[in-house]
Design a protein around this nucleic acid. Structure first.
Lengths: 216, 216
DNA sequence: GCGTTAACCTAGCAAGTGATAGGTTGGTTT
DNA sequence: AAACCAACCTATCACTTGCTAGGTTAACGC
């Protein structure tokens, strides 16, 4: 430990840094701020490739200080993912409960997925990149996915039964195709970009309902 | 280092292990074997989450021994990914060069993608899970993806021009939707599973061309 | 002023990480 | 028999990882 003008480096750092430190009462939900900062990094580099030192640097604090707010690196991402799934499933239920027509319900599910992509782009990008690890770490992810699949299959099979959806393609393959497209969209879609969610939702719903062959 | 019956532990380990070691001339392409073993782990747990000690354990050798065959962990996955992209692009070119009809060419591209999914399931699963890291590490991945996109957009726009594909949805969104579905399929598709590639290729081509609304 | 508390710092640990250097083995070639 | 070589081992390095213990600072309530 070197000394500077009779101060130890510890003292010097403390004096200087504390002055530049933002006031305590300022932005109130510090924990939320840190989650936002961390999520950005997770989405950009991947969860596993992001270290807590990266997060601390981005937040302008020391790595150890993060553990005042969180118990582990995993807990920094858990809320983000849990939020996504509860919201998605809640909106799915609203759609299927309020829409008896299977065709419209299918469009509604696509639409709900895409609109949520807009709100939770970070969460989807994080999951997209580290699904294997994250789904092993957080059991609720597999559980939520299972419920998601159940809702979709129910709607599709209802549509096939009432004759509005084609019985020629396998329901499970339909479901997986849609889900893959929607979540895969997270890789390029940016909420602030030039493609609007509304247009995207309509386009994707159209593709799945009618395909992209020209109507004859 | 403890001793046992006058032997050092080093000697003991050597004597025993060498006896159990497979003969040298046996399976000739050892490097290829190791790539296969590593790929399996990469696909299962993710590239970043797999350590070279995991790979060595699975291969029944010591971690240091891997560096007799490879210069780095990255080089263990590079061939796998490069193979995928060269094959995909080559087959894409065969399709667009030999098929003047845009509708059939589109089906051909979907089909080629799905069939390759069958052959290169591991490569796709690896990319799907660690795309962010891998595409930063291997520049050829972004380059190949760009060429892939160019081929797709060309075919789609040709189809729109000749009136066989709908002009109502954005070409780029079409492309991204298809690609996301196909590569996302790698998450659940298993070559040895009960869904045949042929059926899958047909189903997916049908979904994209005609959608899953019942034909009226 | 005094105690409390949230937010942060410093310093470092234990466990792993990818990678390396040099030695050993046994089959193949000459 | 001698030389060669691929395949592997042992032991270890330098570094990074997530995480922790204990201390410091400043705002707030009484």
């Amino acid at each position: 430990m070197f000394t500077l003008l009779g101060m130890t480096s510890t003292d010097a750092a403390t004096k200087a840094d504390v002055a530049a430190r933002p006031k305590r009462g300022g932005g109130r939900d510090r924990r939320g701020e840190l989650i936002a900062i961390a999520s950005e990094l997770f989405a950009e580099r991947g969860f596993l490739a992001t270290t807590i030192r990266d997060i601390a640097d981005a937040a302008g604090i020391q790595s150890g200080s993060l553990y005042h707010h969180f118990t582990s690196k995993e807990s920094m991402v858990e809320e983000l993912l849990a939020d996504y799934w509860t919201t998605l499933l809640q909106r799915y239920r609203e759609v299927v409960d309020s829409e008896p027509d299977a065709t419209k319900a299918t469009r509604g599910l696509v639409r709900a997925s895409v609109l949520l992509l807009d709100e939770c782009a970070l969460a989807l990008r994080v999951m997209l990149n580290d699904w294997t690890y994250l789904s092993e770490t957080f059991p609720f992810m597999e559980e939520s996915l299972a419920e998601c699949q159940a809702i979709w299959l129910d709607v599709i099979e209802r549509g096939v039964a009432e004759g509005s959806l084609s019985s020629e393609v396998d329901a499970t393959i339909c479901y997986r195709t849609v889900m893959a497209s929607v979540s895969g969209t997270a890789r390029w879609f940016r909420p602030e970009g030039k493609v609007s969610v509304e247009a995207l939702a309509d386009d994707m719903a159209n593709i799945f309902m009618s395909g992209f062959a020209a109507r004859s």
